[in-house]
Computed example of a mutant assay.
Amino acid sequence: MATGASSAKTNSFFGRLAESITRFSGSTAAFIGSAGVVLLWAATGPLFKYSETWQLVINTGTTIVTFLMVFLIQRAQNKDSLVLHLKLNELIAATQGASNRMINAQDLSEEEIRVLHQFFCLLAEKAKQDTDLGQTHSVEEAEDNHEEKLAALRDGK
């Protein structure tokens, strides 16, 4: 796996450009520059008699910048989200007793996520009932309890 400076060499030109622009766009210099452009535009209003063309310049400029920034922000957010998932996956994989089925949970269907959410709600209920704050429960234990409840319901009917 590439790390550090070597990973920058393996990225595409667009990837490196997008990362540079993303880093710069969040900087103080970018904010001051943008504020300067807006102030310059506002100051030229009387010179252009606040014409429609004068207004169109700022509207067009801000629309184009906003349009492009949406994609850069989404790209950065996607990368950050993936990295966060990888770090969580590493913690799950390294933690004894953690359910490995949670690795790559972001790839589950909405129905699978809903079912897991129900299991974690069961775990939360079990935790509320415990007097020992250090007691832990697993998804598998919640599943077993759920199966026992279903069996009891079937036997009761």
Score class of each variant (00 low, 15 high):
residue 13 F to L: 09
residue 39 L to T: 05
residue 15 G to Y: 06
residue 82 L to M: 12
residue 131 T to F: 03
residue 129 Q to H: 05
residue 64 I to N: 02
residue 80 D to G: 14
residue 40 L to A: 15
residue 140 E to Q: 15
residue 12 S to D: 02
residue 98 A to K: 04
residue 55 Q to C: 12
residue 153 L to C: 02
residue 32 I to P: 00
residue 85 H to A: 13
residue 92 I to C: 07
residue 22 T to K: 04
residue 84 L to C: 09
residue 104 N to M: 07
residue 89 N to V: 01
residue 117 H to N: 13
residue 53 T to F: 07
residue 93 A to D: 04
residue 58 I to W: 11
residue 100 N to Q: 13
residue 18 A to G: 02
residue 127 A to F: 13
residue 7 S to L: 10
residue 36 G to D: 06
residue 123 L to F: 05
residue 95 T to G: 08
residue 43 A to L: 02
residue 129 Q to D: 09
residue 3 T to N: 08
residue 31 F to N: 09
residue 89 N to T: 01
residue 105 A to I: 07
residue 135 Q to M: 06
residue 83 V to F: 11
residue 86 L to D: 08
residue 67 F to I: 07
residue 5 A to I: 14
residue 103 I to C: 00
residue 6 S to G: 01
residue 73 I to A: 15
residue 36 G to C: 09
residue 128 K to R: 15
residue 131 T to V: 03
residue 12 S to I: 06
residue 72 L to K: 03
residue 106 Q to K: 08
residue 66 T to E: 05
residue 40 L to V: 13
residue 73 I to L: 15
residue 26 G to V: 04
residue 33 G to I: 12
residue 30 A to Y: 15
residue 38 V to Y: 07
residue 52 E to Q: 14
residue 154 R to Q: 13
residue 69 M to S: 15
residue 90 E to K: 14
residue 150 L to V: 04
residue 27 S to W: 03
residue 29 A to T: 13
residue 22 T to P: 02
residue 64 I to P: 03
residue 153 L to R: 13
residue 72 L to M: 07
residue 30 A to S: 13
residue 7 S to I: 13
residue 25 S to G: 10
residue 135 Q to Y: 01
residue 123 L to E: 15
residue 54 W to F: 05
residue 32 I to Y: 10
residue 10 T to L: 08
residue 140 E to S: 10
residue 128 K to I: 10
residue 62 T to G: 02
residue 10 T to S: 09
residue 141 E to Q: 12
residue 96 Q to N: 10
residue 138 S to N: 03
residue 56 L to P: 00
residue 149 K to F: 08
residue 45 G to M: 07
residue 18 A to V: 09
residue 17 L to F: 11
residue 157 K to H: 07
residue 111 E to I: 06
residue 68 L to Q: 03
residue 141 E to G: 12
residue 121 C to Q: 15
residue 147 E to P: 00
residue 104 N to G: 08
residue 87 K to L: 11
residue 10 T to A: 14
residue 81 S to T: 11
